[in-house]
Lab assay of single mutants.
Amino acid sequence: PKDEAKKKVKEAIKRGDEETAKRIAKKYNLDWDDAKREADEER
C-alpha cells in the first residue's frame, strides 16, 4: 500500500539514506518531493 511505502520513504530520508528513499518512491510511483517535504517537516 502507498501509505506504507511513503512511511518507508520518509524513514529512509530521516536516516539520511536518500538512495533507498528514491528507489522506494520510484517503485511505488510516489511523489519524491512530496515525501521529502513531509519528512523534513517531521524532523
Score class of each variant (00 low, 15 high):
15 R>Q: 08
10 K>N: 06
22 K>A: 04
30 L>N: 00
41 E>D: 10
13 I>H: 01
31 D>A: 05
39 A>H: 06
37 R>Y: 06
24 I>P: 00
14 K>L: 15
21 A>P: 00
38 E>L: 07
42 E>K: 05
36 K>T: 06
5 A>F: 09
6 K>W: 15
3 D>P: 05
32 W>K: 00
12 A>H: 06
40 D>V: 09
19 E>M: 09
36 K>N: 05
20 T>V: 08
4 E>P: 04
4 E>G: 07
42 E>Q: 08
33 D>K: 06
3 D>A: 13
41 E>M: 13
11 E>A: 11
26 K>M: 13
10 K>Q: 11
18 E>G: 03
31 D>I: 05
3 D>L: 11
13 I>S: 01
40 D>G: 08
36 K>F: 09
13 I>G: 00
39 A>C: 05
33 D>A: 09
20 T>G: 09
12 A>C: 11
19 E>Q: 09
4 E>K: 10
38 E>P: 03
1 P>F: 14
9 V>W: 06
37 R>H: 06
43 R>K: 12
12 A>L: 15
18 E>K: 04
2 K>G: 09
43 R>V: 13
18 E>M: 15
2 K>A: 13
15 R>L: 08
43 R>G: 12
30 L>V: 14
25 A>K: 01
2 K>W: 13
25 A>N: 00
5 A>P: 05
10 K>R: 12
3 D>M: 11
3 D>F: 12
7 K>Q: 12
1 P>E: 15
12 A>F: 13
26 K>E: 12
13 I>M: 08
29 N>E: 06
42 E>G: 07
20 T>R: 07
11 E>T: 04
14 K>M: 15
34 D>L: 11
8 K>P: 01
27 K>V: 09
18 E>P: 06
4 E>V: 11
24 I>W: 07
14 K>G: 07
13 I>W: 07
12 A>D: 00
23 R>T: 08
7 K>V: 09
41 E>Y: 11
23 R>G: 05
16 G>N: 04
12 A>Q: 02
21 A>Y: 02
29 N>L: 05
7 K>S: 09
28 Y>I: 04
40 D>P: 04
28 Y>D: 06
17 D>V: 01
1 P>S: 15
20 T>Y: 12
12 A>N: 03
29 N>T: 03
35 A>C: 15
27 K>E: 15
35 A>E: 08
38 E>D: 09
38 E>Q: 07
42 E>P: 07
7 K>L: 11
24 I>A: 01
32 W>P: 02
16 G>H: 03
20 T>H: 08
29 N>C: 15
38 E>A: 08
30 L>G: 00
29 N>D: 09
30 L>R: 00
35 A>D: 02
30 L>Y: 03
39 A>M: 08
15 R>F: 05
27 K>R: 12
26 K>P: 01
17 D>A: 03
14 K>Q: 13
33 D>C: 13
34 D>A: 13
28 Y>V: 03
34 D>M: 12
13 I>E: 00
10 K>W: 13
39 A>Q: 04
